[in-house]
């Protein structure tokens, strides 16, 4: 286990550094999209953890938006340190996730999806009415600083990209190790048979809450990153179609991947950027068809493709054996 941890950490570090170097040679408009992908990929990563338990949240925008607003509002008070803001957003959304998770852990399937949706729509409604928080027009977010270092114009986006890369890298390592841990392995079998888990002495409710808190924390971090990179946040981050978008990407990614969460986000963002530009009246149709085809031909998403190629026999994580 220890060597696994070390190998994964080293691998992630190498990948992060490689990407950071690569980022220096990429034009800025791609870099911005890359930063968005890292931020949204974190939300998707959290949803993947839930999808492993066969839970789909149509309200993940709630934590995403909460993280973004925590980051934005604190930055307006003059605190602009990216590390501190990200930590605060993570903490805040974890607390919200814990409180709501206590209630939500009793729900499954469509009811889980819809309860989450209702909660995120309440936040949306409250934000629209909060004129002091900018109402529907939203609030601006100050440019982040890094432990006292304030990059100027040209460097700002690149430095942020490296920061986001580090955060995403660390979160991915954590998520990967978590899925290989006892808790993580137990969680993956919630979807197969809850009663068997209870019989083994594990609390399904506790497992769900635990994963839910991780997912909401990741969504909160993603929200904080989005707030910092775009410099402006709006209540629409909590609107149900934002959450629907995340679910879309999660399905594309499949439950079992870490890198695929970011890969699927990149695919989604690319389609939207290119198609949105060239065919404004039919890009939704393209996305919809893409979703249908990927559900049809890649039941386990992008992650499923790679697994099948590498390991024909289902491994310990239980590569989504189609038993439903």
């Amino acid at each position: 286990m220890l060597s696994l941890q070390r190998n994964v950490a080293l691998g992630a570090l190498a990948l992060t550094i490689a990407l950071a170097v690569l980022g220096a040679f990429v034009p800025e408009w791609i870099l911005y999209t890359c930063a968005l992908v890292l931020a949204k990929g974190l939300v998707v990563l959290g949803l993947c953890l839930l999808l492993r338990m066969n839970l789909v949240s149509f309200g993940q925008g709630l934590y995403y938006c909460a993280g973004a607003y925590i980051c934005g509002l604190v930055s307006q008070m003059g605190i602009s340190d990216a590390f501190f803001l990200t930590f605060l957003a993570a903490l805040g959304s974890a607390v919200v996730g814990l409180i709501l998770g206590l209630f939500l852990s009793g729900y499954r399937s469509v009811f889980f999806a819809m309860f989450n949706l209702a909660l995120s729509m309440i936040l949306y409604g409250v934000l629209l009415k909060s004129i002091s928080l900018g109402g529907s027009d939203g609030v601006g977010v100050a440019a982040p600083t890094y432990l006292g270092y304030a990059p100027d114009g040209e460097m700002r986006l690149y430095v942020f990209f490296v920061f986001a890369l580090a955060v995403a890298g660390a979160s991915s390592v954590f998520a990967f190790l978590y899925t290989k841990s006892e808790m993580g392995l137990a969680s993956a079998s919630v979807k197969d048979c809850e009663i068997r888990l209870e019989y083994l002495g594990l609390s399904v409710r506790y497992l769900i809450i635990f994963n839910f808190v991780i997912a909401s924390t990741l969504a909160g971090i993603g929200g904080a990153l989005v707030a910092m990179v775009s410099g402006h946040i709006i209540p629409e981050l909590a609107y149900w179609t934002t959450s629907g978008e995340f679910v879309f990407i999660t399905v594309l990614s499949g439950p079992n991947g870490i890198l695929s969460a970011f890969g699927a986000t990149a695919v989604f963002e690319t389609i939207r950027l290119v198609a949105g530009q060239n065919m404004p009246n039919s890009w939704q149709m393209l996305l919809g068809s893409f979703l249908l085809l990927s559900i049809l031909f890649m039941p386990n998403g992008i992650s499923g493709l790679f697994r099948r190629a590498k390991a024909p026999k289902p491994d310990a994580v239980g590569e989504g054996i189609n038993n439903d």
């Binding site: 399937s109 679910v247 399905v251 039919s282 939704q284 149709m285 919809g288 249908l292 559900i295 439903d324």
Partner: peptide
């Protein structure tokens, strides 16, 4: 043959297509 939640997503994709249609 798929899960309830997968069917929900299928219809979600369908709604995107119909809206543009």
């Amino acid at each position: 043959e798929r899960d309830e939640i997968v069917l929900l997503l299928v219809t979600f994709g369908l709604s995107l297509i119909l809206e543009d249609l």
